[in-house]
């Protein structure tokens, strides 16, 4: 019994670390490019992916990946066409969540644990899930490392990127795809509603402590790993829901970093 117990906690912890490693550095770009709503829109679309996957008897991971990639590319194409970006993303984020929930209700004969998809079900991560999650997380990390300087240049100035022979639209597409993968990977761990939190909170917590983009990404990863580990422990000892506990710990780290940052600036 105790073996089994250890096992699911280890699987959950490993899954949490995978999400941390992928979401935190991507989250830095989400923060730098002010794309928080973009993360929401993509994450919320995942519910629609779940509905489609269940309706056509596909793997949930693939269904979610398909819909989120579609959503991410659609939103980045639509940007700058007469609507302010936040309006457009606000529309897409909430519409996709609503349509997804409606679509799930149409599924007859399938009992869908909606709570698991909305808030994650990290304690039920299987070995197969773990393999998929780590494969997704590592491919996101590899894409980000490979395109790092180009992404950074395009983020700072599309104009300078173009002058340097880069295509800012292509870099935007790289971000859209990595975001879609992160959503598909994090769905099981923190759920649709809190995925954006895993993107933004570690990056925001890293900001006051960082002086270069790279250090911000590394600190964000550390924050996210501590949050995943601490959140799971909290969930275990205080019997709280795992996903929200992880985000709560991340938020505490964010507050801690704000105070430390302010203290440092006061010292100088």
């Amino acid at each position: 019994m105790s073996m089994l117990f250890d096992d699911f906690l280890i699987r959950a912890t490993l899954a949490g670390i995978a999400v941390a490693v992928a979401a935190a550095p991507l989250g830095c770009f989400v923060v730098w490019r002010r794309m928080a709503y973009f993360g929401d829109a993509t994450a919320h679309a995942a519910i629609l992916g779940v509905a489609l996957a269940l309706a056509f008897n596909l793997s949930v991971f693939l269904g979610v990946l398909f819909v989120t990639i579609l959503m991410a590319t659609l939103v980045s194409r639509l940007s700058g066409r007469g609507f302010a970006m936040d309006t457009l993303l606000g529309v897409m984020a909430h519409a996709s969540l609503a349509i997804g929930l409606v679509a799930v209700s149409f599924l007859s004969g399938v009992r869908v644990d909606l709570m698991a998809f909305l808030f994650g079900d990290i304690l039920a991560v299987s070995v197969t899930d773990l393999v998929v999650i780590w494969a997704g997380a590592l491919s996101v990390l590899a894409l980000l490392v490979w395109r790092w300087d180009a992404l950074l240049t395009a983020t700072m100035s599309p104009e300078l990127a173009r002058a340097g022979g880069l295509d800012p639209d292509r870099e935007q597409l790289v971000l859209s795809i990595t975001l879609a993968i992160v959503v598909a990977v994090a769905l099981k761990v923190v759920g649709v509603i809190l995925i954006t939190a895993m993107l933004i909170i570690p990056a925001a917590a890293a900001r006051p402590l960082a002086r270069t983009p790279e250090s911000m990404a590394v600190i964000a990863i550390l924050v996210a790993i501590i949050a995943a580990f601490g959140g799971l422990q909290m969930s275990l000892w205080a019997d709280t829901p795992a996903g929200p506990s992880i985000v709560t710990v991340a938020f505490c780290l964010f507050m801690l970093s704000l105070i430390t940052g302010a203290f440092y600036r006061g010292m100088r």
Partner: peptide, 11 residues
């Protein structure tokens, strides 16, 4: 966060 020195190394 980016220093002048780091900025010169982009891309």
């Amino acid at each position: 966060p980016v220093t002048v020195l780091r900025f010169l190394s982009l891309p």
